[in-house]
């Protein structure tokens, strides 16, 4: 029953996603981004695992002089996380993120982020559902920011009850982000829908389309469509 509901929600999310994207495009300029990522997980034992991730983001933007759209590498990102597993599929984690902004410009920027994470998963019939809570501290040269994130995501096998190599699965997630500020606290929402494949030797490949509704409580709200591809492997 729950798998049925989640499948319907996944379909609905694609519809909502299209609606949001269309509406946002009509309302104000829409940013489109592409972000490939490579993730590697090393399981030390049944409790500890370490995750490293490399990402690169391409931004499609207009070129005022030529009038043609060009793609620009927006950022490179490196993440490393340490996760400790508690009983009952619950995990706590600590991570570090380094982000290099506008790497090919004359003045690239960068910042560091420390992340604390609690996550848990459970199964509802065929569907696996994950809940992830994060607190992040962002350190720039002359700035500090705190951010909180809550994400719920679901993974639904398409061809069997369990995921096996060669089987595809549907992905659906929604994340709420909150950035407290003395003057302007802001909220973001990120809605994802996508598809993934389980590959042999504990590897996966995922393609997701993400709609970001940034600072939707403020006048500076914006819409971003992001295509994300992720290759995950375990060692």
């Amino acid at each position: 029953m729950l798998t049925y509901i989640f499948k319907k929600l996944s379909t609905a999310s694609l519809f909502i996603f299209t609606l949001l994207a269309t509406n946002s495009f009509a309302a104000q300029p829409l940013e489109i981004m592409v972000e490939p990522a490579y993730s590697i997980t090393w399981q030390l034992d049944e409790r500890w695992r370490f995750i490293g991730q490399l990402k690169m983001r391409q931004l499609v933007e207009g070129n005022d002089e030529s009038g043609f759209e060009t793609s620009v590498t927006d950022r490179f990102e490196f993440q490393i996380f340490a996760n400790y597993t508690l009983l009952g599929s619950r995990r706590i984690g600590l991570g570090y993120v380094y982000r290099l902004l506008d790497p090919f410009s004359d003045n690239p920027g960068h910042y560091h982020r420390i992340v604390q994470q609690y996550s848990t998963t459970w199964s509802a019939e065929n569907t696996r559902i994950g809940l992830r809570l994060r607190a992040e501290q962002l350190f720039r040269e002359d700035d500090f920011q705190q951010r909180y994130r809550a994400r719920i995501n679901a993974e639904i096998p398409v061809r069997g009850v369990r995921l096996e190599p060669g089987h595809p699965y549907l992905l659906f997630s929604n994340e709420l982000l909150f950035k407290p500020d003395a003057d302007f606290s802001s909220w973001d929402n990120r809605l994802d829908a996508g598809i993934g494949w389980v590959l042999p030797n504990n590897r996966r490949f995922q393609i997701q389309l993400q709609h970001r509704y940034e600072e939707f409580n403020l006048d500076s709200r914006s819409h971003i469509i992001q295509l994300m591809t992720t290759f995950l492997m375990n060692i």
Partner: peptide, 9 residues
């Protein structure tokens, strides 16, 4: 268990 790193991470 099937890897669930994409749900946790």
């Amino acid at each position: 268990p099937v890897s669930d790193v994409n749900l946790h991470f």
